[in-house]
Design a protein around this nucleic acid. Sequence first.
DNA 1: GGCCGACTGTTGTGGTCGACAACAATCATT
DNA 2: AATGATTGTTGTCGACCACAACAGTCGGCC
Lengths: 166, 166
Amino acid sequence: MAARAPQAKRKTGAEGPRTKKIEPADVDVGLDGLAGHVGYAVRRFQLWIFQDFIKTLAAVDITPTQYSVLTVIAANPGPTQMAVAKRLGIERARLVHLLDALEQRNLVTRAASKTDRRSHALHLTGAGEASLRQFKLLAAEHERHVIDKIGKDNRERLLEILAPFR
Amino acid sequence: MAARAPQAKRKTGAEGPRTKKIEPADVDVGLDGLAGHVGYAVRRFQLWIFQDFIKTLAAVDITPTQYSVLTVIAANPGPTQMAVAKRLGIERARLVHLLDALEQRNLVTRAASKTDRRSHALHLTGAGEASLRQFKLLAAEHERHVIDKIGKDNRERLLEILAPFR
DNA sequence: GGCCGACTGTTGTGGTCGACAACAATCATT
DNA sequence: AATGATTGTTGTCGACCACAACAGTCGGCC
């Protein structure tokens, strides 16, 4: 056995039919009870789709989360950090670091709100707006990859079904 | 300003139209460019579905990943750790810890393979099989929650669309 | 006006998770 | 017998999320 795992004593008994090569346990675990579970399928799909997004936007070094933050700010300039966090379902603690990175890259500014000295008004910089336009082109290319994978009609059905989740 | 963030000097100038209460930036960031992205919708859905699964199976303290491991072993007894890892798309390094926990709870055993002394043949214990039957009942209840949320037909369409991802 | 609860951004901690690299034991092939 | 590949294991790194604490600020209420 490998390394040092605690191991039950082997019963070195009957070997059964030996074919010398293929082990049925290894070759393919195949479809099973998981097939009927939505959560599992969704998890695998989400993994694939994020990997493709990251790969497609690798040249500009933008993650799906960063893209969503930029998009939300662009669509409705000047939001509070709280507003963005609530909209995207991420914690405000996490958004702090996300914005730190985006601010360092000069894509986003935290301006003092004119009406509430606690909060920051978030805006895209000029560079941020220009960059976002490029990001959107790449995101559209990613979306085309999705279509190649599941088909155009399936993609639209997916968007309909998942609409209640924003 | 809050805490110690570097902040531009406030221009304490014109206030503009003050209505005293609602800040347009706060009230609702609303639907925007994210609406057309599959990945975002899927992420939100996956978050919801996992939360519900965890909550529904909280009484037996089983996560979605643990459930998938048990299900795979039960459907095809005696697989290698590598086989399970490949089937579920998780790293074998991670599976080690997962199995450690399941073995400590006496749900799974790592038996020495009869044909390859490097590998372990994974099996459910008697308690493991009994427990899994209960887990499946709760998982079915979770699946009913999904139906309540998106509808029975939508759920089945979802399974069809996502079938290529196993 | 002054007090008190609620909110905002921030920091820190802990836990889960995935990618990666190393390693010993074992296998397969030559 | 020797070499390279595979299996399980350990460890590290970074991303991510949940939670709690905190200072500054707002809002309302007496």
